[in-house]
Design a protein around this nucleic acid. Structure first.
Lengths: 150, 150
DNA sequence: GTCTTTTCGTTCATGATTGAACCATTCCGT
DNA sequence: ACGGAATGGTTCAATCATGAACGAAAAGAC
C-alpha cells in the first residue's frame, strides 16, 4: 500500500491560494495601521468608497456590495453619521429604505484615506509588472464569477 | 485648471488589488460555511494546519506564523484542547513555553477539513491554468517579501 | 551570584461581526 | 381592496480579535 497520502499542500492551487489569503490578511492589518491616524478603520473606508461610487445607495445594497450582513451596516453607519461623513435620508418612494450619501466632509476624508491606501497598495504591488497585475485581477474576477458576487 | 483628479480606481494596481481582497473575503465566508459541518472555523483550521506542519511549535511562533496576536492563540487553543484535537505540554528546557502538537484525533479531523477546503479551493481556482496559478502565487510571495512575513 | 531586561503565556476590557428575531412598509395574488 | 409574502432596517445576544497590563521564567550585564 502507498503510505504517501496526497496532501493538499502538494496541489499548486491549494498552496498558491494559501499565499493569497495570508498576504491579504497581512495587507489588511497594514491598512488598518496606516488608516489609524485618520481615525478610520478598513471597514469604514470600504463604506466610504462604496458610497462615493454609488451615491444614494440603500443599506441593503451596500451590505451586498461589501459582502457583509445588513446588521453590520446598521452598526457601522452611526459612527460615520455622527462624524458628518455620511448622510442618511429616507427615500420618498419607499419609506423603508434609507438612501446613503457622502457629505463634503466625508468625501474629503475619503480622498485623504485613498491617498494612504493607494500608497500602501502601490508599495505592496510594486514588484508586479502591469501585465502580471492585470492577470492577477483577471483571475480574481474569474473567481468572483464562480462565487457569483456581482 | 484640471478638474479631473486622478482617482485611485484609475490605477490598475489599486483596482486589481481590490478584486483580490474582495474575493478573499468571499472565499473566507464560503470556507466558513463549508467547514461548519465539521464544527471547525477557519481560524481553527489554520491552527491545525500550522501544527501539522510544525509539530511542537510554541504559541508565540504559532501566533507569528498565523499573523495574529498571542492572546488570540490563548483564546483559540482551549477549544481545540478540550476537543482532544491538540495537546499542550510544557517544554522542559524552558518552562515558559508550551509545545503544541496535534493528537491523532486532531490529525484525522484535519484531514477531513483539508478535503473540504481543498475542494473549495479547487473549485474557486478552476479557471486558472497552472501557469496563471503559479504566477499568482509568485506575486503573492513577492508581496509577502515586501511586508516581510517570514 | 544579583539585578535588569526579555520573552512566553494569560487576563481583561473593548470594539467588531454575525445571525436570528423583530417591526414597518411594500408587493402581489385573488 | 384585502391579506399574506417579501423586503429594508434595527435590535440583541453570542462570538471573536485585539492590545495593554500582568506574572513567571529565562537571558544578559556586571
Amino acid at each position: 500500500m502507498n503510505e504517501k497520502t496526497d496532501l493538499p499542500w502538494d496541489s499548486p492551487r491549494f498552496r498558491n491560494w494559501l499565499a493569497v489569503t495570508r498576504v491579504c490578511h497581512a495587507v489588511e492589518r497594514a491598512s488598518a495601521a496606516a488608516l489609524a491616524p485618520l481615525g478610520l478603520k478598513p471597514a469604514q473606508l470600504d463604506v466610504l468608497m462604496a458610497l462615493y461610487r454609488h451615491p444614494g445607495m440603500s443599506q441593503h445594497d451596500l451590505a451586498r456590495k461589501l459582502l457583509i450582513g445588513r446588521s453590520n451596516i446598521t452598526m457601522l453607519l452611526p459612527q460615520l453619521e455622527t462624524r458628518n461623513l455620511v448622510l442618511r435620508s429616507t427615500c420618498k418612494k419607499d419609506k423603508r429604505v434609507l438612501r446613503l450619501c457622502l457629505t463634503g466632509e466625508g468625501e474629503s476624508l475619503l480622498m485623504k484615506a485613498l491617498d494612504v491606501q493607494a500608497a500602501l497598495i502601490e508599495k505592496v504591488m510594486s514588484q508586479s509588472s502591469p501585465g502580471e497585475c492585470d492577470m492577477l485581477g483577471d483571475q480574481m474576477r474569474k473567481v468572483a464569477d464562480i462565487l457569483d458576487i456581482e
